[in-house]
Nucleic acid binder design. Structure first.
Lengths: 348, 348
DNA sequence: TGACGTCTTTAAAACGCTTTAAGATGACGC
DNA sequence: GCGTCATCTTAAAGCGTTTTAAAGACGTCA
């Protein structure tokens, strides 16, 4: 392999190849390290002639600043730590969007993930050790008190989960309203027997369940309220299908806790020969990549990942750069995404 | 909130709270920073009395070593950079396993992900800036030449993709053999008309296609070879279903490029009223989380994520700690995972 | 008593960058 | 020619660790 571009290589005393340092660039350009640093960071000051020489030297050496050293020397790290669960496709979405939002504010990200063998505590500790100035925690499971303690150390934003009175900032979607929109949509199509597949214990599921019940009562459909047990997995959707459609008056529409559950439900219906949306309408929750698959094409409620991440980063920036100290909770309005699994009830 | 545990807090000259440094711990324990460092890293030397005092002091201050400083000072960073695509559930799996493998060798990880707005090049640059000693690239798309250049800088392992003659280490699964196993399984069940849904251009799809063709010929079923166009998405599986089952003699079994394609295919069959595995058997590829869902229950070929990651980390460690210089390619044997989508052909 | 070990501890020099205050330089007006 | 400024450059002091060579403590043995 021939490298055509002119290349200068830094060789240490022992003759081994060494990664070029700022000093090497400075020497190559005939200036001091201070000047080189200024130029490379785009700080005003150095003359354009100097600028050019330094940039050329840096290019020639293939210089890349050392992040650890830079972090250490900088007063501020401008790094935000993000906790995620690498297994969740919704988190994947959030990470994409938080990258974008952070970049707009000139912040870098450090990712740390929960895995089977690596619990949330450890993942967070890694972040703390990495000079993060703030933490964005995606769906943290730690108790509020632990988050509160953390927040006294550095700004913390919890995403997607209410954290009662712990001082941490919170960004989440108005779940109750999201489910209400789903119910409104179904009622608007003419449905009356609308069931809900529950998400199990936990504060998020409770909010969605409440949203369903209130919306039903608001539409004077209190007598049709039907909640079947479930959890966040697909299997629970399939189970729910069997429960719901064993009855003599099955619902004409189902609102599920999340997309996974909806997909399980859809599948069970399909196998049972039930036409969706002809005989039954189904609405999910999350607008996860899953729901967008062509063959799923699920009507669902969007969590507005992008907007949530914008708010999360904004909250961080305000506390770091704006000096805000008080607690903040941003509740983003959800948005119903109508796709192919909802239609008027049969015979309508 | 009352903090019951005794807590000493470091206050800087201006009165603001400061993160405790090694020096603070040393002062608190009445030893030098050098000793404190030794104790905290578990290095032999300090007496047990000293040890205890330092540990107590550290605990009292809530000391956490600064990773950037530590990285900078250490001769070796013991950090491996991992490139991934946060959107891929298969990568998620790999990341879990690489975490585990790295930990066993005492290495830390830095994650960098590709997103819509952040291409592979940038993601890799972030890693280079983070003092990684080596790179594990999950399904990299960069041309082999670029990887070769990178490899002259630090050990690079490409996972899941052959990289012809670029010097980088490669860990991948024997795709051809994986597909052959799938075909063998189907033939063993009595199938003869076995079709393949292709994965499009690209070296990986080519390998799987070849595996299919050779296995068919080996079983003297060359006349039944049928490859339909496709790609890596679910939609292509659904399209393939329509193509395949429009013919008067449709296959009794289908081997797809990957699980996503298989799921699309399954769905189309289900909607078309075709019984799986009663009328048609389907085999996927990847053993992705998708395939394990109860209602999918797809027979598929495992990529042995855990083993691949073990090899990847081993390759890195050997080059870093073992002084190996030559190129290495580890080809892991695939493993057929038989689930519920395969059965003898109808009338057998 | 002094030489010589063995254990512990530590001073001080990295690590590669940023930042600040001060130094050079040259232009300009008087 | 001299003081004043503005412009550009740099020396030097960190940032919070790790590491190395050497100092110190303490006992042992001839």
């Amino acid at each position: 392999m021939v490298v055509s571009r002119e290349e200068v290589v830094v060789v240490s005393a022992e003759g081994s190849l060494r990664r070029p340092r700022l000093q090497d660039v400075a020497a190559e350009a005939g200036v001091s390290p201070a000047t080189a640093s200024l130029v490379l960071r785009g700080v005003a000051g150095p003359s354009s002639a100097t600028r050019e020489r330094v940039l050329i030297a840096a290019g020639r050496l293939g210089y890349r600043p050392d992040r650890a050293a830079s972090l250490l020397a900088r007063r501020r790290s401008r790094v935000i730590g993000v906790l995620m669960d690498v297994r969740s496709s919704f988190h994947a979405q959030l990470v994409e969007d938080v990258h974008e939002a952070a970049e707009e504010h000139g912040y870098d990200l450090v990712l740390s993930t929960v895995t089977r063998t690596r619990d949330e505590g450890r993942a967070i500790e890694t972040l703390l050790d990495s000079r993060c100035e703030a933490l964005v925690l995606l769906g943290p499971e730690a108790p509020a008190s632990r988050l509160g303690v953390l927040d006294r150390q550095l700004p913390v934003v919890a995403v997607g989960r209410p954290v009662p009175s712990a001082g941490v900032d919170v960004v989440r979607v108005a779940d109750e309203e999201g489910v209400a929109q789903a119910v409104d949509h179904l009622v608007g199509l003419g449905h009356r027997r609308i069931a809900h597949v529950d998400g199990g214990p936990g504060v998020i599921a409770a909010g969605r369940r409440r949203g369903y019940q209130r919306a039903m009562r608001r539409h004077r459909l209190g007598s049709h309220v039907q909640v079947v047990a479930g959890d966040s997995g697909e299997a629970s959707g399939a189970r729910a299908a069997r429960t719901l459609f064993a009855s003599e008056t099955p619902p004409t529409a189902v609102v599920t806790y999340n997309d996974a559950s909806a997909v399980g439900l859809l599948d069970a219906l399909l196998r049972g020969g039930v036409d969706v949306p002809g005989q039954v309408s189904v609405v999910g929750y999350d607008d996860s990549p899953l729901s967008r698959l062509a063959h799923v094409d699920l009507t669902t409620v969007s969590q507005e990942s992008r907007e949530q991440m914008r708010h999360a980063v904004a909250a961080v920036v305000e506390r770091l750069d704006g000096g805000r100290t008080g607690h903040r909770e941003v509740v983003v309005p959800p948005r119903l995404v109508v796709r192919g699994t909802t239609a008027p009830p049969p015979g309508d």
